[in-house]
């Protein structure tokens, strides 16, 4: 496999895992804009253990993931007392705190970053992404998943049905934190270097967008969202220059056409984001859509609704 495709697959796998980490709390109705914070904890945990103690990769990534999960569990109690936009701000602030602490820490290399000796090639993150995807599909098919989705729709009634809504939300938040940490650990070992600037606010925003635009009602949503938004900039990388020279030749401009500025890709990404919000406010993949694919045939035989 070419280095280019190995790189793309690695990023795609990491983004899918990361997206599932944010999807779990979002599916219970808790927006998490602190993704980069959890990812940074997993990445720096793995990087530090690898650089300082030379621990094997499964251990470094496992410990980083566990620390991120435990952090998620601990902060869930105060954080989930806040609602709506305040929760969004609180999770965002959490990521800022994590970033600030790492930036000011000599142990973690401060602004210089840490280099990570042990390298993993693309099939480690890809395998991890497959396992995580299967895990989340499994989770959503259980009663736990049912109560998560119920809490998303109506907390009061979910409580009256006998569900401990707070426990479900804390569990989803913590498992989500662990998955984001796993994404971070995989990142550290795939790129052999971590610096806190790569876990910035934009990263938190993008991963939340993957989830919201992919759809929060089924486990297909984050898979679709992460894949679409990871592959789109890559597709545009080849499509845009072709488009530009096409337009130039239509306009009758002669000679070699300079490649379009890279920022155009993000303009198109932004425009698509707005379009998705307008035309598919519930996300790309919805329950009704899955229903259309799955149930119509079995229902067709039955009589008219009574």
């Amino acid at each position: 496999m070419s280095g280019y495709w190995a790189g793309i697959l690695t990023i795609l796998a990491i983004n899918i895992i990361f997206a599932y980490g944010i999807f779990l709390p979002v599916a219970t109705g808790q927006l998490n804009l602190g993704g980069a914070g959890f990812q940074a904890i997993g990445a720096y945990g793995a990087a530090f253990l690898s650089a300082s103690f030379g621990l094997p990769v499964p251990v470094t990534i496992g410990v980083g993931m566990a620390i991120a999960g435990i952090t998620g569990f601990v902060i869930a109690f105060p954080l989930l007392r806040t609602r709506g936009v305040y929760l969004v701000l609180a999770t965002f602030a959490f990521a800022e705190v994590v970033g600030g602490l790492i930036l000011n820490s000599d142990t973690f290399g401060g602004a210089m970053g840490l280099s990570v000796p042990a390298f993993i090639d693309w099939h480690v993150p890809v395998t991890a992404a497959v396992v995580v995807t299967l895990f989340v599909f499994y989770l959503m098919s259980t009663r736990f998943g049912l109560t998560m989705r119920a809490a998303h729709d109506d907390e009061v009634v979910t409580d009256l049905m006998g569900v401990n809504v707070r426990s479900i939300q804390v569990a989803a938040f913590a498992i989500g934190g662990a998955l984001a940490g796993l994404a971070g650990g995989l990142y550290a070992h795939s790129f052999n270097f971590v610096e806190i600037q790569s876990f910035n606010a934009l990263v938190s925003i993008y991963v939340l967008l993957y989830v919201l635009l992919g759809g929060t009602q089924t486990a297909w949503g984050p898979l679709a969202g992460a894949t679409f938004f990871t592959m789109l900039p890559e597709a545009l990388r080849t499509v845009l220059p072709a488009l530009k020279s096409g337009i130039y030749s239509l306009a009758g401009v002669e000679g070699a056409v300079p490649a379009p500025d890279d920022s155009w890709r993000f303009v198109i990404l932004g425009a698509l984001t707005i379009a998705m919000m307008v035309f598919r406010p519930e996300g790309l993949i919805t329950r009704t859509m899955i229903e259309r694919f799955g149930f119509h045939r079995s229902r067709a035989g039955k009589g008219a609704p009574a």
Partner: peptide, 16 residues
């Protein structure tokens, strides 16, 4: 629960 199916809504009632 608007996003749950009929069956899932009923299964939620079994929670206790």
């Amino acid at each position: 629960m608007p996003h749950l199916s009929v069956l899932e809504n009923v299964m939620l009632g079994q929670q206790a």
